[in-house]
Simulated scan of single mutants.
Amino acid sequence: MAFRNHSTVTEFILMGLSDDPHIEALLFMLFLVIYLLTLTGNLMLLLVIRADSHLHTPMYFFLSNLSFLDLCFSSVTVPKLLVDLLSKKKTISVKSCLAQVFFVVITPGTEACLLSVMAYDRYAAICHPLLYAQVMSHQLCVRLVLVSWGLASLNSVVLVLLAVSLDFCEDQIIHHYSCELPSLLPLSCSDISIDIYILICSSLLHGLGTSLPIFFSYARIISMIWTISSTTGRSKAFNTCSSHLIAVILYFGSGLIRYLMPTSGSSLDFLFSLQYGVVSPMVNPLIYSLKNKEVKAAVKRTLKKYL
């Protein structure tokens, strides 16, 4: 019943990243390596955090959830991209496309909320170290993760209902490598002015709702760091939150631009989508492991224990 408006179009054609077979072969190898690195890095981080009791703290509880989200996010689009790079006809059914829209919204939406929660966690650790254990209790951490999933689910349901209500008459070509709502809207033969307005409002509310707590948390953190007299103390405090700050900049910068910019099918659309959908899930475990002495020490302990 929900798909009655799509009877004239049963499948979409994805333009992909290139139509040159030689370039597609190179891209297949590149994205296969990226996907394998993403799986390996995030699974390793999950296993190390679970196996090492020294990492059973709120910060690493959130980090393990972030790794799980990165695994889910990359698995929503990259396997289909890899298949399309080896296929002559890059098609996807309407139902599969709408399902991909849902998961492309809920996983990065939850990740944005989680990054916001992690910023508050860093604020509590640096600005209130003596009360940190009381403030960031395990019950609160679990609730914050559940709230992140709940808010992202609500946002994704709203946007998927927009996609379901669209009429698709003739145009089947999606000028992208995956199904995202900004790429689907131009294909509709119905009036999409309200849909664009809702998409922009939803993106702004979700983006500002998650980025403002990050901004205020880091404003307090920076002001606190400047009050520390010793250079060593400042460096230690900054290193505590630098990994998270890098992840936030990489993720929010490309994600918000992708959903707020008009879709043009240009290389910029692909670039921003690949940045937050493919590159960020691979880079996050590297950022948190290479810049974190506790994680590196935990990896060594885990390797010694099992090998």
Rank of each mutant, 00 (worst) to 15 (best):
M1N: 10
F3C: 05
R4M: 10
N5G: 04
T10G: 14
G16A: 02
S18G: 11
D20G: 04
H22K: 15
I23E: 15
E24R: 15
L27D: 14
M29C: 13
V33K: 00
V33G: 01
L37Q: 09
T40C: 14
V48L: 00
R50L: 05
H54C: 08
N65R: 06
L69W: 00
C72R: 03
V76N: 00
V78K: 06
P79R: 06
L82W: 01
D84V: 04
L85P: 00
S87V: 07
K89W: 11
V94R: 06
V101D: 08
V104H: 15
T110R: 05
T110I: 06
T110N: 08
A112C: 13
C113S: 10
L115Y: 10
Y123L: 14
A125F: 06
I126N: 03
Q134E: 15
S137M: 10
H138S: 13
L140K: 11
C141R: 13
V145S: 12
V147I: 15
V157R: 09
V157P: 08
S165K: 10
C169Q: 07
Q172C: 11
H175K: 08
H176M: 11
H176D: 15
S178P: 09
L181K: 06
P182W: 01
L187R: 00
D191P: 06
I194F: 07
I196V: 01
L199T: 02
L199H: 05
L208A: 05
G209R: 04
P213I: 00
P213F: 01
I214K: 06
S217G: 11
M224S: 12
W226M: 09
T227H: 11
S235A: 13
S235I: 11
K236C: 04
K236D: 12
S242L: 13
S243R: 12
V248Q: 04
Y251R: 01
I257H: 12
I257Q: 12
T263M: 10
S266D: 15
L268F: 01
F270S: 12
L271P: 02
F272Q: 03
F272M: 09
Y276A: 04
V279S: 01
M282V: 05
V283S: 00
L286R: 07
I287L: 12
I287S: 02
I287R: 01
K291H: 13
V295C: 09
A297L: 14
